[in-house]
Design a protein around this nucleic acid. Structure first.
Lengths: 139, 139
DNA sequence: TGATAACTGCAAAGAATTTGCAATAATACT
DNA sequence: AGTATTATTGCAAATTCTTTGCAGTTATCA
């Protein structure tokens, strides 16, 4: 992963820094998408000296290079980021109680897309699908 | 509509005011969901004297009474509001070029919900589905 | 008409995110 | 290895959307 990161950074005239490495490492160590401030907190716990602004800027770069994807879950008012590397297209379900986010591996929308294109005359480029509910612990 | 509004307001110890009437009227005159600031601008054009804060507070009340629903479209960073009165459950498609929002009357997710509940052990209470693309003019 | 709340406007606070700029650090070249 | 170049960082401050506090205004009901 680091190898590909260096490659990607170089190709766009960027540099591999202590902070970029640290951000990527924390994201890799987490199976659910983190917000910028969550990432910041975890870095602080690990005694990595970094500014929240730098976290934002790093996430922007990683997103531009295609290493992470940016999620916008409803009722949250913030972005979340997760490693995109080698992951299939998927959606999420979020617990309305504790906020826990779980991946959904299915996506039933491919067929629907062409139907919608016919109906609206739009060219569909993306879709977001998200469920909200209560996880077993919060029920 | 106004009749039901008065009824709803009364029932919760609230009052029908010039501003609430105006906000509802503008929402009714629009077929696509408006943001608070868009609503504010339209009211200004109509020479209705109102503060943006009051627009927000009014939208909150209308939402609580079930007269409008609050939407959170992706890549927008703001809420939108649309009349809910007598409208069926639906989703939206938004043009990535001009931002135009069109309703989608179909919803293919009812069957999917029980599948997801089995898979995740969540109780699903809501879902959001949204498409992004280019409208005929922006293609 | 007057009393009692609810409602409004204004200013200011909050939260997430972005921007400007000088100091710092990674890279390339010698 | 040493130095010049230029990307990156940290800090402060700005932005955007939304919410809150409070005193003055207005709708409602006796």
């Amino acid at each position: 992963m680091i190898g590909k990161l260096i490659e990607g950074l170089r190709a766009t005239g960027r540099r591999l820094t202590r902070t970029r490495r640290a951000v990527l490492r924390v994201l890799e160590g987490n199976q659910y998408p983190l917000s910028a401030s969550e990432l910041y907190e975890r870095l602080q716990k690990e005694k990595v000296s970094i500014d929240l602004v730098t976290v934002y800027r790093t996430l922007t770069v990683l997103k531009e290079l295609g290493f992470v994807s940016q999620l916008e879950l409803h009722h949250e008012g913030q972005f979340r980021y997760e490693i995109r590397q080698g992951r299939k297209h998927h959606h999420h379900i979020r617990c309305q109680g504790c906020g826990r986010i779980v991946d959904l591996l299915l996506c039933p929308l491919k067929k629907l897309t062409s139907l919608i294109e016919k109906e609206t005359q739009f060219v569909v480029n993306e879709h977001t699908l998200e469920f909200g509910g209560l996880c077993p612990k919060c029920q």
